[in-house]
Write a protein that binds this DNA or RNA. Structure first.
Length: 342
DNA sequence: TCGCATGATTTGCG
DNA sequence: CGCAAATCATGCGA
């Protein structure tokens, strides 16, 4: 017979107590020699505590705390409680890593919101932006920095919220733990139970954390889609930029492939990016080739323009810069027909 | 509102 | 990777 079965037997014997026995110190003393009745008596006293005044209850509490049977009773009650609680929620007890929260964590890490500070973060953001852009060498200057600034903002809010959350969680956990420890002097609360309560609190708080992570992810997604939209949105270059590009194109018609340096210079002149210059030349070449006739007028215009410009500097230079001159294997040069026919 | 112009993106090749 | 070619998507004038 172990302690618990003995205990249960003692509980079964409760029915034998008369109302008059309860609260009578003499009868308690008389029964000390009989474990079963003794325990039953203590239980009755505990149950009756709520009916008493505060002072009486405090006194009774103290008396019970000092009772020599208290530690044994306490541990047995803990054990019983442990068994019932376990049977009720034993299954929920395991805490498998939530796949949802892991997914969110991974995304936040990939976006550079969570994880290491500034350096790694912005690098990850740049990587994400580059991945989002997809096109090689897309060095979107202004939009990119805008995106990074917005991301940093989200990151800051996320971290401050996370900090608040962690503080609240630990504060609350401490509070509950202190409360339970305090109560464990009068109620059968085992350390294991406190542990479980802490786990429950953490679970509750982690659902809040998940909400925070989820909304952060959403914010990042919205930012990203906006950024992508902005990149996708086409804006015509200004007249001056088109002029500069066209001038270069028609004055290098035999070989309209600007070098990297030339592209950089054109980009600077037109206040656009190098990749935009590349795009422009790619489009121009293909469209010019497809329909030379259509570009005839434009070609003549720019040919004259460059010729005039060159002439103002040097008479020979106009010859060298003429689009018709260096035409070995290049694009067909336009003929100077007034009606635009080849 | 329609159709063309045009900048950006995608795809495939060497 | 740089390019050609095709395609997408928006700007803009008629």
């Amino acid at each position: 017979m172990d302690d618990q079965t003995r205990m249960l037997a003692g509980l079964a014997g409760l029915g034998g107590l008369s109302q008059g026995d309860i609260g009578d110190p003499d009868s308690v003393r008389k029964q000390l020699g009989q474990p079963q009745q003794d325990i039953g008596d203590i239980l009755q006293q505990i149950m009756a505590i709520t009916d008493e005044s505060l002072d009486e209850a405090q006194a009774r509490k103290h008396a019970l705390n000092c009772h020599r049977m208290k530690p044994a009773l306490f541990s047995v009650l803990c054990e019983i409680k442990e068994k019932t609680v376990l049977s009720i929620r034993g299954i929920q007890d395991e805490d498998p890593p939530d796949p949802q929260i892991m997914r969110l964590d991974n995304m936040l890490l990939a976006e550079g919101v969570s994880g290491p500070e500034k350096g790694g973060g912005s690098a990850a953001a740049a990587a994400a932006a580059a991945a989002a852009g997809g096109s090689p060498g897309a060095d979107g200057g202004i939009e990119h920095s805008d995106y990074r600034a917005k991301l940093a903002q989200i990151r800051q809010i996320y971290h401050s919220e996370l900090e608040k959350y962690e503080q609240a969680c630990s504060e609350f956990t401490n509070h509950v733990m202190n409360l339970l420890r305090e109560q464990s002097r009068t109620r059968p609360i085992s350390p294991k139970e406190i542990e479980r309560m802490v786990a429950i609190i953490h679970r509750k708080f982690s659902s809040i954390q998940m909400q925070l992570k989820q909304s952060t992810c959403e914010a990042v997604m919205i930012l990203r889609s906006r950024f992508l939209d902005a990149r996708r949105k086409r804006r015509n270059f200004n007249k001056q930029a088109t002029e500069v590009l066209n001038e270069y194109f028609y004055s290098h018609l035999s070989n309209p492939y600007p070098s990297e340096e030339a592209k950089e210079e054109l980009a600077k002149k037109c206040a656009i990016t190098v990749s935009q210059v590349s795009n422009w030349f790619g489009n121009k070449r293909i469209r010019y080739k497809k329909n030379i006739g259509k570009f005839q007028e434009e070609a003549n215009l720019y040919a004259v323009k460059t010729a005039v410009d060159a002439a103002s500097v040097s008479a020979q230079a106009s010859q060298a810069n003429s689009p018709a001159t260096p035409n070995s294997g290049g694009y067909p040069a336009p003929c100077y027909t007034p009606d635009g026919r080849l």
